[in-house]
Design a protein around this nucleic acid. Sequence first.
DNA 1: TTGTATGCGTTATCAC
DNA 2: GTGATAACGCATACAA
Lengths: 354, 354
Amino acid sequence: MVGDSGSGPEQGGVVTQAAVTRPAASARPRATTSADVARRAAVSRSTVSHVLNGQTARFNPDTVERVRQAAADLGYVPSAAGRALVIGRSDFIVIVAPDTTLTRLQDVVEVLAADMKDLGFTAVAHFPPTEAERELPSRLHRVVEALRPAGVIDLGGLSARDLDYLRGIGCPVLTQFEQDTLNPYIGTLQAAHLHSRGHTEIAYAFLSDGRTNPYASARATGVGEFCAEHNLRAPAHVSVSLDPSSAAQALDQLVGRYGRRFGIACYNDEVALALVYAAQRLGLSIPDEVGVIGVDRSSAGQLVVPRLSTVSADVVASLARVRLAIVRTYGTGSALEELPPLDEVVSVLPGETS
Amino acid sequence: MVGDSGSGPEQGGVVTQAAVTRPAASARPRATTSADVARRAAVSRSTVSHVLNGQTARFNPDTVERVRQAAADLGYVPSAAGRALVIGRSDFIVIVAPDTTLTRLQDVVEVLAADMKDLGFTAVAHFPPTEAERELPSRLHRVVEALRPAGVIDLGGLSARDLDYLRGIGCPVLTQFEQDTLNPYIGTLQAAHLHSRGHTEIAYAFLSDGRTNPYASARATGVGEFCAEHNLRAPAHVSVSLDPSSAAQALDQLVGRYGRRFGIACYNDEVALALVYAAQRLGLSIPDEVGVIGVDRSSAGQLVVPRLSTVSADVVASLARVRLAIVRTYGTGSALEELPPLDEVVSVLPGETS
DNA sequence: TTGTATGCGTTATCAC
DNA sequence: GTGATAACGCATACAA
């Protein structure tokens, strides 16, 4: 319908020639239904439905077992379509990926998906379209409309419009940024580390990827709070794209403002690398004059000279709050998790750049 | 059911405290249905269905317009649930993410998703569980069974078992690795570049992440083919994890085999960085003695000294083959794409390490 | 304790 | 040209 074809990014993805496995003949075998299970267990479809939905108490244990066995034998999985139709929602949870490059996205989604599965949900990920081709209704709209998901977990890519839409239709949304404490804490940690290295002028370097980045904002806020508490000047904000000239430009700004001695808290290790590179070319001494600290403990940052100072976070632990929220929303209340204190979730890994 | 909670990786992901938006009251508003549209257009539901499905020819133009207007007014989106139920399959395409860290995964998925949308499909991504917690039936099983997707696109995470399963149920699967030409070509390019730099001994460095990596295998094959064609010794294979000691160990092996002069084609830029780092510490001169070339044109690789030689691929172009396969499978045959030649999709970006 | 009947929203067949 | 009607697979109120 919409005519335009893939806009989009440029470099690196390396995917290739495709071979298609066509459906066997053309007719796709019908999947096993609850009727099949019922037949095999010698009960009615409704009994199957009841048993499989946990109404196990008021049934003959023998029957329950038979039904379960039959379902297992046949590898029966209730059709989301039928279920969604009658319930009004499905067992799917949609994870909305951030439109920012999140280094450990795969890990995050995997952990979340495993959790969801333990709660009886099935997680799928939605990657929002790039800025360029935002359409109406959005793709998320379609996904939600079709899936009727039990919930949506926003990792950062949810637009305000989509959020409104979801709230409008009463779909539970887990937004991590409303009461986020971890990302501000990360910023605080960066600032505190630079401060401990003797820096009294601290700047924050955003990744310039054209979009608002909730992670970056939250972290910059943390940096700002630290500065305020310690009577330092409010941090300058610079925006850096991942090339030498952009980084050099940002450094120029900072030198203009601070002179030759200051610390930079960076959105991530890549930004930090760019600034370190530019600083060296500009003859700024690292770490003596300029201190740099990133976030992510990327392997690259640990394999270069000078080795990057960075903030390292534990994926599983950092997801604890999201998981807790999920359990609270949908949970059987069973496994009430402990929230690990922030300083166990995230910590500074000192390197040679600060 | 399964007891275990999130196993998984350790570092970096940075997600945080969550706030839940609960459904308005508890009852979720029912979406507008074709019946609503029918009422508003003063026709029957079946007429709505016909018109909206393009059976517009044999209808009174007035009626057609009325129906369309009503649908637009109400923001009507056909329920995929109902649709899937009657059709037997949904409009979903499941993109299976690789279990390997694919640098540009987000870009890849975004491009693919945009394409799918143009074809009338909705893409969702599935992240297969980590090795540790492979379960039976797999999560993919559940996703597919519940979604009844129109197809599955494998980016690398599809297990043999899942592939069998999908073929068994007649679900079209796009596997890129069966007739992959791009990844071998990347390997060839790496080898040719090292060769052009005077290296007659060439090794391949895998990323040691515990899993079989179809990308890496295909690329190593390409390296091997180049060597065979140019009467070089078959490349040694080493496995490198992203820390100095592992890289040093790998280098030791290679020095033992080749002496102090050889080239290394690396799975990606991170592996390359690790080897460069280790080589420098071992007193091997880069690029004079050891040549190193990566893949991905990661920004980090371009922001360090020595700047990494790498192979750079165009995401959109490299997806052309997959997209073509998709169009062939589902397409209206309309936009028959040109396949760009490989040397326009991918190219060597010489740096200071080769 | 189990089975029957109904409806969810859609499409497809077939009357009118 | 248009509109009833029957599935699709599931869950559930209700009857047995």
